[in-house]
Design a binder for these strands. Structure first.
Lengths: 347, 347
DNA sequence: TTATTTTACGCAATCGGTTGCGTATCATAA
DNA sequence: TTATGATACGCAACCGATTGCGTAAAATAA
């Protein structure tokens, strides 16, 4: 009763007195097979309870309908949204996702890439770990022409495509907004500049300062993991500065650090935005919960994931050619909230 | 130069003048193979750049070293933490994760289960969608003795194991805490009682009321999707009640609904906890950002995911037997914060 | 009616490892 | 020296679906 043998196309073939080849073709709606036999086959599938064996198929057809995804970490709002977007797209087209996290460690990223390759994913979606310097570990993919798409934390490479936003422009807008509010000493909390996203945000910040004749000082530029702790630490750093050297605004490269910095400063008695204005990046749920609400950059993980996966699949299906597209830039919008509104006139 | 043929164990065999069988065994550290040949094989693997083909292997050996994971949605803090925990455990033991989301829809859950089965996952980790009534769609797994572990939103089934927390007890403690603070009209914001987690939280709430001689009234029991919107709506509902019928506390079955309810009530001028105390569930990051901080139940998605995956893998490796274990209950702790502290004496 | 084309299907090789069984080689015991 | 066992490896079938090629049967044309 239990542990019955697996039902294969051979069983169906025998059952119907036809060949396994016909069954295989019938199952895939090959026009070579008559409507009548196709019907008989699908009926037999029902009555016998046949389930296709994906990897017997993979072995022969050489594609797995599986996409590999490597992310720095699974449990951030942005990343889980991106994964949700990918899953949606993948599911719609009959693809599955194998997901692994590098935990910001190149070595783990390398191992992940190797297993993905061995499992013969049809394509790879990757957002680099913070300390990845080169992408030699992706060579096997390039060699075998397996498409690779970088998303968010991308890498310049002309055989593959990148999906992200214009970080430079977004950071420029944020900084300009703070300047427009009258801020003159704007601190920047940044991430590892090995990653384009943080480098570009830094560049946008600096360019905005320069365009508005404000000096850039290393003292007002902190780099770190942008974690809760990093935010709290930044607050400590600010409080240690003599009051006349303190920033009158903070632009953080993510919302987490911004929020924890705000909480610590508020705890020390500073008022936001009166004493110090704030802006973050990501539009994380916490940005709408903190009081005052945090000005930030809306930047949809879901769209990025969905777009990246859709492009990859279209390429695999031959509908479009990725090699023609080197980068896809999605929109990112400045969301102005109370944390940065010093001029109370909403005009 | 490009698109070179795949390197197989046959190439290695030819290169070393041994049989493919020996190469296969050598690669898997089969003791039957001498140390010397094993060395030669691993060397040849290096020089030839061999990469194993996972599904050729799967086809014969009938296991994929892949675990299927089906979750209601990927982008919630709890779920993404659970996935992170699973990925950690899986990665450590050489397993991969195929992840799909049901988006709270049984039909999608069914389709997901079917593809997972076809891809021949070695085991399944599943948290049910809110409207799943039965689990006939998991029958193929049971029939073929593929282990299934339910986590968080579990289902009573004696061939499989559940990993979760004691929701009844946690909810009881939360409610009791609110009662101890002097609250007498405690509202409960619950989820779909089709899911054990919400049913049990409701039960714990009711039992605590009963044990403290407080009446349970349907008027103070709202059921919904526990989304941001649901939280806001609940606030609207509360404000519509005549002041003497209003609750003096709200216990929400998740933090999201609690926080958005708080924000709306605060917007209407109510003070928390003086006018109305709050408690949530999950210890979501937003619970530490909202002012006042939200009392909640700490309940580690990471541990649940890690535990569930580890048990599954141990079972697959024959180290332990899942059938002996019907349920695993992890700890959940009441975290008391300002949103529920009406007695200001911390003793 | 015969030749030609089309339609529908079968044969058998193939994808790349895995594994049960058989055996040559060498060490050890008798 | 011969019998016995252990060790190390090869042979070949096998997992289950796919697909190039070949062909019988039916349809159409000549």
């Amino acid at each position: 009763m239990s542990d019955e043998r697996e039902i294969t196309i051979y069983d169906i073939a025998k059952y119907l007195n036809i060949s396994a080849a016909t069954v295989s073709r019938g199952l895939k709606n090959n026009p070579m097979i008559s409507k009548a036999t196709r019907k008989k086959i699908t009926d037999a599938v029902q009555t016998l309870g046949y389930q296709s064996n994906a990897f017997a198929s993979n072995l022969r057809s050489r594609h797995t309908h599986t996409l590999g995804v490597i992310v720095p970490r699974l449990n951030s709002y942005f990343m889980s949204s991106a994964l949700a977007g990918m899953e949606n797209a993948a599911n719609r087209y009959g693809y599955n996702l194998i997901i692994a996290q590098s935990l910001e460690d190149v070595e783990k990223e390398k191992r992940n890439a190797a297993t993905m390759f061995n499992k013969r994913v049809d394509g790879l979606l990757i957002s680099l770990s913070s300390n990845t310097q080169h992408i030699h570990h992706l060579e096997p993919f390039f060699k075998r022409k397996i498409p690779v798409i970088f998303f968010d934390r991308v890498y310049p490479h002309d055989e593959s495509t990148s999906v992200g936003i214009n970080n430079f422009e977004a950071a420029y807008q944020v900084t300009k907004h703070l300047i427009d509010q009258g801020c003159k000493r704007i601190m920047h909390l940044g991430g590892n500049v090995l990653r384009n996203v943080y480098q570009e945000r830094l560049n946008g910040y600096r360019k905005a300062l320069q365009d508005h004749h404000l000096p850039f000082t290393e003292q007002l530029h902190l780099t770190g993991p942008l974690s809760e702790q990093a935010g709290t630490d930044a607050a400590g750093h600010i409080l240690e500065l003599s009051p006349n050297k303190r920033p009158d605004a903070v632009f953080s490269a993510n919302d987490t650090a911004a929020v924890y910095c705000m909480l610590a400063l508020q705890g020390a008695g500073l008022r936001i935005p009166e004493d110090i204005a704030f802006a973050g990046f990501n539009n994380d749920p916490i940005s709408k919960v903190i009081a005052p609400n945090l000005t930030t950059v809306e930047y949809s993980g879901d769209s990025i994931g969905h777009t990246a996966a859709t492009y990859l699949i279209n390429h695999l299906k031959g509908i479009s050619d990725l090699h023609a597209t080197n980068a896809i830039t999605l929109r990112a919008d400045l969301v102005i909230r109370a944390s940065s509104l010093k001029n109370k006139n909403p005009e």
